[in-house]
């Protein structure tokens, strides 16, 4: 029951973060479609680290559906699902080496890069054209910066949550 409540909070938090993100005009600085801070990825990471993979998948899918229906429109659903799933996949793999081979930094940056790659893959499928991959280098490089930012936020969040002892790292 506690898990259900926490999952619901995480989903609503992720939806709110996706909404707030729309007001940060990152694409005015770097005019590339789909460029975002990836704040909702912090929630995905939290779910992955404290709740497990099933929970992370549920939070990701529902967040994408809700955010797309509320603010993005149907076309954005496929892009956000493709990005979010790629990110989740890569982060799940990298997490197996957490504290040994990788820290939050590598996991977050890998997630950001995978997110961008997923979205570009989906975009090239939808537009039936590979030219859109021309955007990927810029997205990958900015992903390093946004990945660093989300890693800093996540590290601080995780340390607070662990002190609180209400949820445990898994």
């Amino acid at each position: 029951m506690k898990k259900l409540a926490l999952n619901s909070i995480l989903i609503s938090l992720a939806v709110v973060l996706s909404y707030i993100e729309r007001f940060i005009p990152l694409d005015l600085i770097i005019p590339v479609p789909g460029i975002k801070l990836g704040l909702a990825n912090i929630v995905t990471m939290f779910a992955l680290f404290f709740m497990g993979l099933t929970s992370a998948v549920a939070v990701t899918v529902l967040r994408c559906i809700l955010a797309s229906f509320l603010f993005g429109g149907m076309s954005s659903l496929l892009y956000s699902l493709a990005g979010a799933f790629m990110a989740l996949m890569v982060m799940t793999v990298l997490k197996t080496g957490y504290n040994k081979a990788f820290s939050i930094l590598g996991i977050s940056m890998g997630g950001a890069a995978a997110h961008n790659t997923g979205q570009i893959l989906m975009a090239s499928l939808m537009m039936r054209n590979a030219a859109i991959f021309a955007y990927l280098p810029v997205l990958l490089m900015t992903g390093l910066v946004t990945g660093l930012l989300t890693a800093i936020i996540a590290v601080n969040l995780f340390s607070i949550v662990e002190k609180n002892k209400s949820v445990k790292l898994i």
């Binding site: 040994k100 081979a101 930094l105 590598g106 890069a113 990927l136 280098p137 990958l140 995780f158 340390s159």
Partner: peptide, 22 residues
């Protein structure tokens, strides 16, 4: 709390940068 990077993090960064450049 500060990030304590591991060796693998730099591998991740290197892979991303190299693929971006290529």
């Amino acid at each position: 709390m500060r990030i304590k990077p591991r060796a693998g993090d730099f591998v991740v960064i290197a892979v991303i940068v190299i693929s971006a450049v290529l």
